[in-house]
Design a protein around this nucleic acid. Structure first.
Lengths: 352, 352
DNA sequence: CTGAAAGCGCTTACAG
DNA sequence: CTGAAAGCGCTTACAG
């Protein structure tokens, strides 16, 4: 006789493995073995236990299992922000859903971290077994999160990358390649005067990857193709800023026949500005956007030719890599640079 | 002397409360009390323990605490979908971030559920203590999730609502009101021939709330204002469908002076179609969108007049309500209908 | 093939 | 003010 009979069940808690055991007339370890498909169990016993499980509606207590197993089986996604409201405009849903999908496939939970993270709270997440691994978004060239974690045994992976990549794993957009491809495509269409609207200056100064690398890539492309070009570093969250910057660009170089942006929103502003100046797109000027943009590309008139990445895939792959690292129980250094895909729509054409 | 000294620490696990205790030369319960701010503890002891905690980098094991405490302190957000890819186009980031923000404020974790949910796996989430509460998105009039959960003691809350609301809590968009407001606004501008582009027919047949209620609201508004109107139920995920449907609408009633849509994307299609027919917006025809749309409203030319809700706020409030219900330990029936906000931009004007 | 025992890391009465 | 004991629900050697 076990001490805990089903009649002693605490009504505030659910049905436990002990309840199942007494109901099936076996011991607790036997139920546990059946639950975990371990070793040999008499077929008849297995049946009885399964019936008891069904009848009682039993499900093993996750926290208890994890306490025993040592792993939390949960991953977290971190995007550093000041205000959560702000996030909506910079973080695409697919970054979250892609990670969530991969996590759930591997039977991990995925927490989306919104709290302001400090070095202390970051370490605490691991130390308190709240998470087994972390997926880091919006990584800077010199990122305190990386600097802290790289000297710890705690697994993490970057979407994006920092300056010193020794021994670290990441998946990042190949922005340098994208810039070269953009110029390559436009030059082939005969364009020789190309404007560029890129990330804000302070993003670059703060060392945010795409901001740094898009400008680098731009300069390389200029060198390579020897075209005339000018650029502006601008705010990315409104059509207006794209509008103003485009007017500004046109004033500096009225001969522009193409404009490249790093946001669809900005491109929409460019089109508005060009229209206001009596220039049609793509007739008088081509416009091209590099980056994500969901369905924005086809909302704009004319629809935007883009060099684009799938945030869903990237996030999915990063999360999968995290689970593999955890399964391997050792750092699995994998560094992946993802090339963009050229999607030609209506906003670009040969120069007349 | 405790049996577990810090030298016997399993390197695969972190530092435990026992390690802190031996380091500080006190018992485990004493450390626990200090950790939880319980009762009277000698100031000197507290100091010593805190020093040990610092020195060892100790953080209490979350799973263990939860096992003891009985609550998982985690909430889940569920959006029913066939394929995760599809999700990106229908679920806005702020729904996720709003919930995550509220959860983290109340020290809950938030899991975003992507796995295909079955009645069984739903119950298991609660029974296995994986979650304490659930936030349900995309609720149908007759929703199996609700039907199942309402006869269980497991707390949940809807964003949206089903047909039988007895004793249930929800936060929903007031779509009926929105339709009346849309018509009210347009009628005041002198419009008497108004087209309406709404949710797909099969959404309505499947009983998805907004699809059902927007058409209901539309009919009420027609009655109330006695205007001429025709509508189409169409796919919402592409500009093209809005384009085609608008041409169709114009053929049925060439006198249309206004079009209302339930998606910004659709409205963009309408504008394209009107332009193709040689009609300017808003000069010859006004266009208005009801719903969310992020920054799409200002990307479109002309920018869209909208009746809009903040998904961030709605999700935030729903999650807060969930935590309050959990704190109260009893169903806290709260039913909230959120009115939309009218934002006048460039796509509407008085009829000439 | 199955049970008694120990332990995962923590907290809560219970005694001092 | 503090420690010894019991227990949260489960799993894993260890013996039969």
């Amino acid at each position: 006789m076990t001490k805990k009979s089903s009649s002693s069940r605490n009504p505030n808690r659910g049905v436990t493995i002990a309840d199942v055991a007494t109901a099936a007339g076996v011991s607790v370890p036997t139920v546990s073995r059946i639950l975990n498909g371990k070793e040999y169990v008499a077929e008849e016993t297995r049946q009885r236990v399964h019936e008891a499980i069904q009848a009682l509606g039993y499900a093993p207590h996750t926290q208890a299992r994890r306490l025993r197993g040592g792993a939390s089986m949960t991953l977290a996604l971190h995007y550093p922000i000041e205000s959560p409201h702000e996030l909506s405009s910079v973080l695409e849903t697919p970054y979250i859903t892609g990670a969530a999908a991969a996590a759930s496939e591997k039977e991990y939970f995925l927490n989306f971290l919104m709290s302001q993270l400090t070095p202390d709270s970051l370490l605490t997440m691991y130390r308190s077994n709240q998470i087994d691994g972390l997926i880091l978004l919006q990584v800077r060239m010199d990122d305190w999160r990386i600097n802290l974690l790289r000297q710890q045994p705690y697994p993490f992976i970057m979407i994006g990358r920092c300056a010193d990549l020794d021994g670290l794993s990441f998946i990042d957009l190949d922005f340098e390649l994208a810039m070269r491809q953009a110029f390559d495509y436009l030059v082939q269409l005969g364009h020789r005067d190309i404007g560029f609207l890129t990330y804000p200056e302070d993003w670059r100064i703060r060392g945010i990857g795409p901001a740094v690398r898009s400008l680098d890539g731009y300069r390389q492309a200029l060198n390579e193709y020897g075209v005339h070009s000018c650029y502006r570093e601008i705010g990315l969250n409104s059509v207006e800023e794209g509008f103003e910057a485009t007017l500004d660009l046109l004033q500096e170089n009225p001969n522009l026949t193409a404009i490249v942006t790093v946001r669809h929103l900005t491109a929409a502003g460019s089109i508005k500005a060009l229209a206001q100046q009596g220039r049609s797109v793509p007739g008088d000027c081509s416009v091209m956007a590099v980056g994500f943009g969901g369905n924005l590309a086809s909302v704009v008139t004319p629809s935007l030719t883009t060099l684009e990445w799938s945030p869903y895939e990237i996030s999915y792959e990063a999360t999968l890599l995290m689970t593999e690292t955890l399964a391997a129980q050792q750092p699995l250094t994998k560094q992946l640079l993802v090339p963009p895909q050229l999607v030609v729509r209506e906003s670009t054409q040969e120069v007349k």
